[in-house]
Amino acid sequence: DVEPGKFYKGVVTRIEKYGAFINLNEQVRGLLRPRDMISLRLENLNVGDEIIVQAIDVRPEKREIDFKYIP
């Protein structure tokens, strides 16, 4: 289970104008929005990159997770 405030290693699987989709595993995916990136820009991410993200909002009923990147 993903818990708000905890850090997780994930893989960038898709990049859109509104953010990057990060997979923690095959069943768990969330969104990293540009506003939640500190010292990292969306255009510097590539599909396949491994990054450490912090879960900031977890909505299991909608199967949605918002992430934050903190270097």
Rank of each mutant, 00 (worst) to 15 (best):
Asn25Arg: 07
Asn23Pro: 00
Lys17Asp: 12
Leu40Tyr: 04
Asp36Lys: 03
Val12Thr: 01
Phe21Trp: 14
Val11His: 10
Val11Gln: 08
Gln54Cys: 09
Lys6Cys: 10
Pro4Phe: 09
Val12Asn: 00
Phe67Met: 04
Asn44Trp: 14
Ile56His: 08
Phe67Pro: 01
Lys6Asp: 05
Ile51Asp: 00
Val28Asn: 08
Tyr18Asn: 05
Gly19Thr: 02
Leu45Lys: 01
Pro34Leu: 11
Asn23Ala: 14
Ile70Ser: 11
Ala20Glu: 01
Ala55Pro: 06
Leu40Cys: 09
Pro34Ser: 10
Thr13Asn: 05
Val53Cys: 04
Glu61Asp: 14
Leu42Lys: 04
Ile22Leu: 04
Arg35Thr: 11
Phe67Arg: 01
Leu24Lys: 00
Tyr18Ser: 05
Ile65Val: 11
Asn25Tyr: 07
Glu64Pro: 03
Glu50Val: 15
Glu43Lys: 12
Arg41Met: 12
Arg41Val: 12
Arg29Lys: 11
Val47Lys: 05
Gly19Cys: 03
Asp36Ile: 02
Met37Leu: 06
Val11Tyr: 14
Gly10Cys: 04
Glu64Arg: 08
Gly10Ile: 03
Val11Ile: 14
Ile15His: 01
Glu64Asn: 07
Ile15Tyr: 01
Phe21Leu: 10
Tyr18Leu: 06
Ile52Thr: 11
Gly48Ala: 04
Arg63Leu: 13
Gly19Met: 04
Glu26Ile: 13
Ile38Thr: 12
Pro4Thr: 14
Asn46Leu: 14
Lys6Ala: 09
Asp36Gln: 06
Arg63Trp: 11
Lys68Gly: 14
Gly48Val: 01
Asn46Met: 14
Asp1Gly: 15
Arg41Ile: 10
Ala20Pro: 01
Ile15Cys: 03
Ile56Trp: 09
Asp57Gln: 15
Glu26Gln: 14
Val47Ala: 05
Met37Gln: 03
Met37Phe: 02
Ile38Cys: 11
Glu26Lys: 15
Lys68Cys: 08
Val58Ser: 08
Gln54Asn: 04
Glu50Gln: 14
Val28Asp: 08
Arg33His: 05
Leu32Gln: 01
Pro71Asn: 08
Ala55Met: 05
Val53Tyr: 01
Asp66Phe: 13
Val2Asn: 02
Glu64Gln: 14
Leu40Asn: 05
Lys62Cys: 08
Thr13Arg: 06
Asn44Tyr: 12
Arg63Ile: 07
Val11Phe: 11
Ser39His: 14
Glu16Ala: 13
Val2Leu: 09
Leu45Arg: 01
Arg59Leu: 05
Asp66Gln: 07
Ile15Ser: 01
Lys62His: 09
Gly5Trp: 06
Ile52Trp: 13
Gly30Leu: 04
Asp36Met: 06
Asp57Gly: 15
Arg41Cys: 09
Ile65His: 04
Ile22Arg: 00
Ile22His: 01
Thr13Gly: 07
Glu64Val: 10
Arg35Glu: 11
Ile38Lys: 09
Val2His: 04
Lys68Gln: 11
Phe7Arg: 08
Lys6His: 12
Gln54Ser: 06
Leu42Glu: 02
Gln27Phe: 15
Ile38His: 14
Gly5Ile: 03
Leu31Asp: 01
Met37Cys: 05
Ile52Glu: 07
Tyr69Lys: 02
Val12Met: 01
Ile15Thr: 03
Met37Pro: 02
Glu3Asp: 08
Lys9Ile: 12
Lys17Tyr: 14
Asn23Phe: 09
Arg29Phe: 12
Val58Lys: 05
Ile52Cys: 11
